Amino acid sequence: MSQAPTHDRLMIYGAYGYTGELIAREAVARGMAPVLAGRNEQKTGALAQELSVEARVFDLDKDAISGQLADIDVVIHCAGPFSATAPPMIAACLASQTHYLDITGEIEVFEHLFAQHEAAVAAGVVLCSGAGFDVVPTDCVAARLVEEMPEAQHLALGFDTRSGLSPGTAKTTVEGLAGGGKIRRDGRIETVKLAAQTRRIDFGDGEKAAMTIPWGDVATAYHSTGIPNISVFMPMSPKRITQVQRLNLIRPVLGFGPVQNFLKKRAGQVQGPDQSTREKRPTHVWGEATDANGGTCTARIKVANGYTVTRDASLALAQRLLEQAPAGGAYTPSRLAGWRFVESLPGSQPMTISRV
């Protein structure tokens, strides 16, 4: 089996986006010297010059990527929409034997990555999507729950956050509306109505109304745990849940190009939370495993703001790969670093477990 070359070099692609810039600045603050890359020459160059690191400008097509990763050990891919950008970057990483991380939460991207497992094994390359808030905390909760209840047949996960959205996250949310809700039933991912399931949940900050969302764990938690039935929840006021459910009536229209373009233009005007807001708004993460007899096991953990988690988790996983990468293959975050990884992140409290 071929082995990935060792250059001890990190590339952050999409470094001038909201989250990419957070990661780039923190990497430099930690004494790293990442290569900052992206499609926009002016934005990439300006940030790299400010941080006194190397800049590379290239598009994500086969000819443009060729040779750009030859001396790179690990890529943190931050340029969305990942449904369009992840496949060519993954292919380039496999060709150049460069380990790959991204910060997506898109189910289709996770499924594409898992389909590359054999190619990654052959290349000696680690592929891991969801190396940020999507899906590190929830994935680690899932892994902890299956350790406690290996016979679980149903898994519910969720999070309660008051953090605002970055432009990229807002655009991804717009894309997801037309695709409907997603759950995993009997091992298969199924499309369901938006807000198809509702229930009241105490995520760790008091009981609240919640609805199902098409979150990345519908894909990843199955690979981390083998539990065949998975759904993901987030809190929402009853009024907002009703509004989301009404979107099911016009969901086909939401997929039309002009409608998507209009909504994405509006989403692009969103401003991501500033440092003060991030520091004041941590996240409560929750999970519940249920066995065939109705027994339940619940896990909760309080972590930092989602964007702070993404910054710290992606860099910690990159550092892990730079220092001692495991055998090549497609990984989930908990498979790559263990469920305790989430507890090691700045701002995280110990995970609590209760069983009924």
Rank of each mutant, 00 (worst) to 15 (best):
D186I: 08
A142L: 12
G45K: 06
E21T: 14
G105F: 14
L113E: 14
H117A: 02
A299M: 09
L101R: 06
Q275F: 08
A92H: 05
D71R: 13
A123V: 02
V28E: 03
A152V: 02
S314Y: 12
M1C: 07
P258D: 01
H77L: 02
L127R: 08
A123D: 09
G124M: 12
T308N: 13
G14T: 06
A92W: 08
G45M: 07
C78I: 09
A304D: 15
Q245T: 00
D71F: 09
G268Y: 00
L94D: 04
N40L: 04
Y13Q: 08
N248E: 06
R340N: 10
I189E: 14
T198C: 13
F233T: 02
A210G: 04
S66R: 14
D312V: 03
E343N: 03
V135C: 12
H99T: 11
W215A: 14
T298Q: 13
Q349E: 15
R246H: 11
A55T: 04
A48S: 10
I90E: 05
A86K: 07
A152P: 00
V121A: 10
R184C: 02
P81H: 05
G287E: 09
H7C: 07
R335S: 12
F58H: 09
D134C: 02
L155G: 03
Q116A: 06
Y222A: 05
R39K: 06
D61W: 10
T225Y: 14
A337V: 03
R9L: 09
E151M: 03
G31K: 11
G295E: 12
P228D: 09
I107S: 04
Y100G: 02
L263F: 00
G38I: 07
E111H: 05
E151T: 06
L321Q: 04
V253M: 13
A120M: 11
G272Q: 06
A196R: 10
M89R: 08
E323I: 10
A195M: 13
G272F: 02
E190T: 01
R30D: 10
S314I: 00
I213D: 03
S83I: 15
K302T: 14
F159A: 05
K265H: 00
V35I: 15
W339K: 11
A4D: 11
T161N: 06
E175T: 07
Q68G: 01
R25F: 03
L145G: 04
Y100D: 06
A289R: 06
C140W: 09
T283S: 08
D160P: 03
E288H: 08
